[in-house]
């Protein structure tokens, strides 16, 4: 029996390396091709000219004004979308858990709804809403953060909900309240520090989403980095491919950091579950 298992483990290890190596080559190939494409010189040689331009922001802004506008818009969109997503979701989800448990299903349903309404569908319905947005605050591309918050809702909701499930919000807030803390203090000083990594992952996911969003921006005729990349792709392909690759690497770094934050949260949850089981054992 032991021999059988050993043989299986060995076979699995060989299979694992072969499969992982094959997939790695397949998935890295397009990324490598992007790098090769941006460094291809005129005579078939290697040149870093495209990348030099990309990091020389003064030249970049004057040579490719669309790109510069798009990058600026995307930067503000990231900040505002994260701020609005967190400001809307965190207090609501906590409040519903503490005071309105009956509404929890409703909030969950609404937050996950954008998964069933694709962005291409949402944009059809958003067009008239944005006519009003333009009427009240103007037609700046930065107003897209309102739509992006909707797109981010499902991902941010899941992250925050998972974070809250890992702590005993009710006990924590009751303890704080009985010691004389107001709701604002409970929020800022008790709940938020305890779900920091969940909030962080909601923020990262939102940033990754905003960085890659094209559908709504393009169909509402606004500028963001992806729209600019797409437009530039027709005239100066190397620069647009370089910017895509840079955006991708940025998203990669963000989500890689997130995988560490998520790991810590997972451990915290395990510890918490053990504590809860212990508590139940002692009380019953």
């Amino acid at each position: 029996m032991a021999g059988l298992r050993q043989r299986r483990v060995r076979r699995q290890r060989v299979l694992r390396w072969v499969v992982v190596a094959l997939f790695a080559v397949l998935f890295l190939l397009p990324l490598f091709a992007m790098l090769e494409f941006t460094t291809r010189g005129a005579g078939g040689g290697l040149t870093w000219e495209t990348w030099r331009v990309l990091f020389d922001w003064g030249t970049l802004a004057s040579t490719y004004p669309i790109l510069w506008t798009g990058m600026k818009a995307s930067f503000w969109l990231m900040l505002l979308s994260v701020a609005l997503t967190l400001a809307l979701l965190v207090p609501t989800v906590v409040w519903v858990r503490l005071r309105l448990p009956k509404l929890r299903r409703v909030v969950e349903f609404v937050s996950l709804l954008p998964l069933t309404v694709p962005a291409i569908v949402l944009v059809v319905g958003l067009a008239p809403v944005y006519a009003w947005v333009v009427y009240f605050v103007g037609g700046s591309s930065v107003t897209l953060f309102l739509a992006y918050t909707v797109l981010a809702l499902p991902f941010a909701y899941r992250a925050i909900d998972a974070g809250l499930s890992a702590i005993d919000v009710r006990t924590l807030s009751e303890a704080a309240r009985s010691l004389g803390a107001g709701w604002a203090t409970v929020m800022w000083k008790v709940v938020l520090p305890n779900i920091r990594s969940a909030v962080l992952s909601a923020a990262f996911l939102t940033v990754a989403l905003v960085l890659g969003e094209f559908t709504i921006a393009s169909l509402l005729n606004r500028d963001n980095i992806q729209v600019a990349i797409n437009q530039l792709g027709k005239s100066s392909a190397p620069v647009s491919v370089a910017v895509s690759l840079a955006a991708l690497v940025l998203a990669f770094v963000l989500l890689f950091l997130l995988s560490f934050a998520g790991r810590r949260r997972g451990q915290a949850r395990r510890v918490n579950r053990v504590n809860r089981v212990n508590r139940e054992r002692t009380t019953s």
Binding site: E36, Q226, I229, S244, L245
Partner: peptide
């Protein structure tokens, strides 16, 4: 990351490949 890797970037990656 790669599951999020859609859109314009992905199309360009394949055009470069």
């Amino acid at each position: 990351v790669l599951a999020q890797f859609g859109g314009v970037t992905l199309a360009f990656a394949f055009i470069a490949t």
